[in-house]
């Protein structure tokens, strides 16, 4: 199989649904060997079927990104099953909307541990793996439009996504000094019609229409659009791009 990512092994976290699932399929379509990770085994199987349907290659590993030992396991297993990884997509994350007054310390801790510490651990272990394998690499951190602009009743989520936006820049500077060089970029999705959104706001098609009406391009955001952006950032098409913020939001952030 040929493609932009032929012969490259890429790990995608949260690849059991939504953006992660679409990304795993898109990377595999470009010839990457994909390691799809996540907590939901059923969703993982669905991802593998999606990859098989495009003639790609993937495995699923159970993975809770909050635990460092599980990251070590994912990287070790990746090398055993495929080859030293070329790329990591730090996609797994949580989302909730709640007024500040009702957001508890525990709410904050939970979303921080997944979105911020989970992403940090991914970057850390990817750097370790790239350094020891001598494999050049690329990392994409999935932040959010809410890691660039504020949103009411989302102070905790904005805190975590702002953290990812900024971590990406420090990681990009460190990666630029590594040998071989590692690129690190962030993707900033707007409102994307995924289980993350429907779990919070419901899946009434009228709501999807309302989101589309509220978006300058008058489109509902689909996971596939995010997957296309991630494939670009991971691939050599973006070989001069590092520390960048790619916003893919139908124009919401400009509005």
């Amino acid at each position: 199989m040929s493609g932009k990512l032929h012969g490259r092994t890429i790990i995608v976290t949260g690849a059991t649904k939504g953006i992660g699932q679409a990304t795993a399929v898109a990377l595999a379509r470009e010839g990457a060997a994909v390691v799809a990770t996540g907590r939901d085994e059923k969703g993982g199987e669905e991802t593998l079927r999606g990859v098989a349907a495009v003639g790609g290659e993937a495995i699923f590993l159970r993975h809770d990104i909050r635990h460092e030992a599980e990251w070590e396991h994912v990287f070790a297993e990746t090398e055993k099953r495929f080859a030293a990884p070329y790329g990591l997509v730090n996609n797994a994350g949580n989302f909730f909307v709640k007024p500040l007054a009702e957001t508890t310390e525990t709410n904050f801790d939970n979303i921080y541990e997944i979105n911020v510490e989970g992403t940090f651990l991914g970057i850390k272990h990817a750097f370790r793996s790239f350094a020891s394998s001598g494999q050049a690499g690329a990392i994409v951190n999935v932040s959010s439009l809410m890691g660039q602009v504020g949103f009411p009743d989302a102070i905790a989520y904005c805190a975590t996504k702002g953290a990812i936006t900024a971590m990406t820049k420090s990681a990009a500077l460190e990666g630029a000094k590594m040998n071989p060089r590692v690129r690190v970029n962030s993707l900033h999705p707007g409102v994307i019609w995924t289980p993350m959104i429907t779990a919070q706001f419901g899946d009434d098609p009228a709501l999807a229409d309302a989101f589309a009406a509220d978006t300058p391009l008058k489109m509902i955001g689909l996971p596939e659009y995010m997957a296309d952006a991630i494939v670009y950032l991971i691939s050599d098409d973006a070989s001069y791009v590092t520390g960048a913020e790619l916003t893919a939001d139908g124009g919401r952030g400009a509005d």
Binding site: L100, G147, G150, P152, C158, G162, A166, M167, S170
Partner: peptide, 28 residues
């Protein structure tokens, strides 16, 4: 909170987070 600093990824996380919290809180 706006540009990178090699060796300070934890500090970046905190200051980038604070930067966005200010905006979200301003709206709320």
């Amino acid at each position: 909170g706006k540009i990178g600093a090699p060796g300070f990824i934890h500090y970046s996380a905190s200051k980038g987070g604070v930067r966005l919290m200010a905006k979200a809180a301003a709206l709320e």
